[in-house]
Computed example of a mutant assay.
Amino acid sequence: MPKTAETVLEINLNHLEHNYRYLKGKLKPETKFLGVVKAFAYGSDSIKIAQKLEKLGVDYFAVAYVKEGVQLRNAGIKTPILVLHPQAINFTELIECCLEPSIYSPKILMEFLEVAKELRQKEYPVHIKFNTGLNRLGFWENDIDYIKKKLEGRDEIIVTSIFSHLAASEDLNEKDFTLKQISNFRKITQEFDEKINPKPFKHLLNTSGIINYSEAQFDMVRSGIGLYGFGNNVKIDAVLKPVASLNTIISQIHKIEPGETVGYNRAFTSEGYQITATLPLGHADGIGRQYGNGKTYVSVNGQKAPIIGNVCMDMIMIDVTNIDCQEGDEVVVFGGNPSAEEFASTSKTISYELLTSISQRVKRVFIES
């Protein structure tokens, strides 16, 4: 009997614990660990993941937006939560839920100071982000004097940490650029400590940074994709364990004759007598049209079955001509073989995009010993 009778995203919390302990093992005992749980914890379930990591002793969480942090607070998460990309319209709710904002520009700094003043805050914790080369968000190195000036005589906020983000830590061909980012961040931290008190803690490394540049771990590291089982490195991927596995079933099997077509726009034409199987998931579930027409395969009873024709909104057709299977059999879309990284690579994308695309209408099932 198959393990599942419908499309499910299986989330293995034992694997999450394994990945967390592996990454922690690369750090000094005193280095703090931030778990990134934005985007529904990389497409899985942010509440369940955060609850597990909180039990394991994670020091911080990070989300992208205030709404994500509010959801965690409403679920009872007590650990500090850094909001990486807050918008001014949400500052009041952010403060009410004891979330900690990344302050990344002069505009955001002044707007947060005013809201903090209106709400009569004293030494509310904030995190100052500096741009060291990613050129996405962050103050420049020469903004330190500006920040100092704006904070003088104000007690509404306190700078808890300063941080930056590496642009290419997974690519050793870009080692010189990464080392330059690390050097720039060191200069920023030194100048900041000289000019602004009290001294905040510092963090720079992401998952690939932990693996490739652990000497730059500063006071805390941040891990997202590594927690979910991917290290942007074949050797590391072999050690980490994927947390999410997308499984489904065969809804119906068709025997088609030579010259018959399958799916919308008649995108697949049979060259002979073939057997196809229809699966109950599609691009509305996060498996986009780019995976169709023979580019990608799924696993049926341990054998590769290519996706044929165009991916539909709620259905995918696969070729099972040479596979012994029947209606109701389980199908592994990704998680084991293929892995999410392998599946994504067939359409020249990455595991991050595939994982975070899995629709919330897909049932989540949790495994924990």
Rank of each mutant, 00 (worst) to 15 (best):
F343E: 06
G335E: 12
G302D: 06
G336H: 15
Y291K: 07
C312V: 07
N337S: 11
F334R: 10
F343Q: 08
K295M: 02
K295T: 11
P306Y: 11
G294E: 12
M317W: 06
V311N: 04
Y297V: 14
C325K: 00
V298W: 03
Y291D: 00
A344W: 10
G294H: 07
C325W: 02
N301I: 14
V300L: 05
N293K: 15
E327N: 00
D329P: 05
A340C: 07
G292N: 00
E342C: 11
P338F: 10
M313F: 12
E330A: 03
K295A: 04
D329V: 15
I307N: 03
Y297M: 02
E341M: 09
N310A: 05
D314E: 15
T346H: 14
I316Y: 01
G302H: 07
N310M: 13
G335K: 13
K304L: 11
I318D: 00
G335C: 07
T296D: 02
A305W: 14
I323K: 00
Q290D: 03
T346Q: 06
Y297S: 13
Q326C: 08
Q290T: 15
G309H: 07
V333C: 02
V331W: 11
N322G: 08
E330C: 05
E330V: 14
I316G: 02
E341P: 04
I308T: 08
M313H: 08
M313K: 15
T321L: 01
V331E: 01
S345F: 14
D329N: 12
Q290P: 00
I323Y: 05
I350A: 11
A340T: 10
I308R: 06
E327H: 02
M313L: 13
I318Y: 01
E327V: 08
Y297E: 06
A305F: 12
A344D: 00
E342H: 11
S339W: 11
A344G: 14
M317Y: 10
V320Q: 01
D324M: 06
N322C: 04
G294D: 08
Y291T: 09
M315C: 09
V311F: 08
K295L: 02
V298R: 06
F334Y: 15
K304V: 13
Y291N: 06
V298N: 00
P338L: 13
N310Q: 12
G336M: 04
T296F: 00
E327P: 01
N293I: 15
F334T: 09
S345R: 14
V300F: 12
S345C: 10
A305I: 10
V331D: 04
V320M: 04
E341H: 13
K348T: 15
V300N: 00
D314M: 02
Q303C: 07
G309C: 11
V331L: 12
P306L: 11
G336F: 14
G336S: 10
S345T: 12
V320H: 04
G294R: 12
P338N: 12
T349H: 12
Q290K: 13
F334S: 03
I350Q: 05
G309K: 13
G328Q: 01
D329S: 06
Q326Y: 05
V298A: 06
G328L: 04
T296E: 05
D314P: 01
I350G: 00
P338S: 10
M317V: 15
E327A: 13
Y291C: 00
V311M: 02
E327F: 08
S339V: 13
G328Y: 03
D314K: 05
